[in-house]
Simulated scan of single mutants.
Amino acid sequence: MNPKELALKAITDVFVRKDITAFDKYFSKDYKQHNPFIPNGTEALKQFLPTLPKNFKYEPGVITDHGNMVMIHGRYENWNGKNMIAVDIFKIEDGKLVEHWDVMQEEVLPSQSANGNAMFPII
C-alpha cells in the first residue's frame, strides 16, 4: 500500500469498522501523538474506541499526500455529542503510521454560517 492507501485503510478500519486490531496492523509501536489530549502509543486509543456511541460515524473526504505525509479531511458524527470536521495528518514510515496531528472544529451548517458554505465535503 502507498501512504495514502495506508492512512485511509487505517482510519477507516478504526473509525468506520471500529476494529481494534487495526492499531496493531497499521500503527507503529512507537506511535507519536500530537493531539494534546491523547498520550503517545495506541493503548489509550484502543481503550477509547469501544466507548464511542453506537450512532458515531466517520466519513473520510479529500485525501492528499506529500511524500510520507498524508492528510485526510473527514467528518466525525456524534463525537462527544457534536459533529466535528477534522483534518487528520499522518506521518508514515516503513508501512506504519508513526505520528499524528489533527485540527478539529465543530461543524456549522451552511444555513448557520456567515457565508452559506458547507464545511464538508469539499466538492
Rank of each mutant, 00 (worst) to 15 (best):
N2M: 04
N2Q: 12
N2G: 15
P3G: 05
P3S: 15
K4D: 11
K4P: 03
L6A: 04
L6Y: 00
A7Q: 00
L8Q: 13
K9M: 08
K9Q: 15
K9D: 03
A10N: 01
T12L: 00
T12N: 13
T12F: 00
V14P: 00
F15G: 03
V16L: 01
V16Q: 14
R17Q: 13
R17G: 03
D19L: 04
I20L: 14
T21Y: 03
F23K: 08
K25V: 02
K25A: 12
Y26L: 03
Y26W: 12
K29D: 13
D30F: 01
Y31G: 02
K32S: 01
N35F: 01
N35D: 12
N35R: 01
P36Y: 03
F37C: 00
F37D: 10
F37V: 01
I38A: 06
P39K: 03
P39R: 05
P39W: 05
G41H: 04
T42K: 06
T42Q: 05
A44P: 02
A44S: 09
L45K: 02
L45G: 11
K46T: 05
F48N: 05
F48Q: 08
P50G: 11
L52D: 06
L52V: 10
L52G: 08
N55I: 06
G61N: 11
V62D: 10
I63R: 11
I63T: 15
I63S: 14
I63D: 07
I63K: 09
T64Q: 13
H66F: 12
G67M: 14
M69P: 00
M69E: 12
V70L: 13
M71K: 10
M71N: 07
I72Q: 00
I72K: 00
H73N: 11
H73I: 08
R75M: 12
E77C: 12
N78C: 10
W79E: 10
W79H: 14
N80A: 12
G81F: 10
K82I: 09
K82S: 14
K82R: 15
K82W: 04
K82G: 07
K82L: 13
M84S: 07
M84G: 06
M84F: 08
V87E: 02
V87W: 03
I89R: 07
I89K: 04
I89Q: 12
K91D: 11
K91M: 10
K91N: 11
K91C: 05
I92H: 07
E93G: 01
E93N: 11
G95H: 06
G95Q: 07
K96L: 08
K96W: 02
L97P: 05
W101P: 06
W101Q: 02
D102M: 05
E106D: 04
E106C: 02
E107T: 02
V108S: 04
V108C: 07
L109W: 07
Q112Y: 08
Q112K: 15
A114I: 12
A114P: 06
A114M: 13
N115V: 04
N117L: 14
N117F: 13
A118V: 06
F120Y: 14
P121G: 07
I122H: 10
I122K: 10
I123M: 09
I123W: 07
I123V: 11
